[in-house]
């Protein structure tokens, strides 16, 4: 039985080659093998959305993908969006609109929003709520998150 697979994954435009056991979840691989701890793990059964990453540009639960399946694919995590000194416009908007409190769910929401705003640059409040309905947040009641997404959309349209 082959217990270890060599994989090559591009994460945030950097190519990583690693050997993984097939059962290792992509969330654990990103966090513990690559040290990209911005992706958070809240439930490991695909409901909370904290571990959302972009898998070839589409939002996906990294707790419901095996790392071995990411071989040859392109992953974007929150670390790939912006830096402290150069925030992505969505991150800027979350800062300005107080779109986070404890910040645990935030990375998964940011990654969900990236493709959403690409596909829908001027969303209604209802569409925003629908778009983030797969991301649970226990702190904010979502209102400032919705405001932040609206603000981000404005920023990005400019």
């Amino acid at each position: 039985m082959q217990n270890s697979f060599n994989i090559a994954v591009t994460v945030n435009d950097t190519r990583y080659e690693r050997a993984v056991e097939p059962r290792i979840l992509l969330s654990d691989f990103l966090r513990h093998d690559l040290g990209l701890t911005g992706t958070h793990v809240g439930c490991e059964h695909g409901v909370c959305g904290a571990c959302t990453i972009l898998f070839d540009g589409q939002p996906a639960r990294s707790c419901l993908v095996f790392a071995v399946q990411a071989h040859g694919h392109k992953i974007t995590t929150v670390e790939g969006l912006g830096t402290i000194d150069n925030l992505h416009p969505i991150q800027e908007a979350f800062h300005e609109a107080h779109g986070l409190q404890c910040g645990f769910c935030t990375p998964g929401i940011l990654t969900t929003i990236v493709p959403f705003l690409e596909q829908n640059p001027d969303p209604s409040e209802e569409e925003i709520r629908e778009a983030i309905s797969g991301n649970l947040c226990r702190c904010t009641g979502y209102q400032h998150i919705v405001d932040a997404v609206k603000l981000a959309a404005e920023k990005m349209r400019k």
Partner: peptide, 9 residues
């Protein structure tokens, strides 16, 4: 069906 993150996979 579920959420966007589930529908993508």
């Amino acid at each position: 069906i579920a959420t966007s993150q589930i529908r993508s996979r």
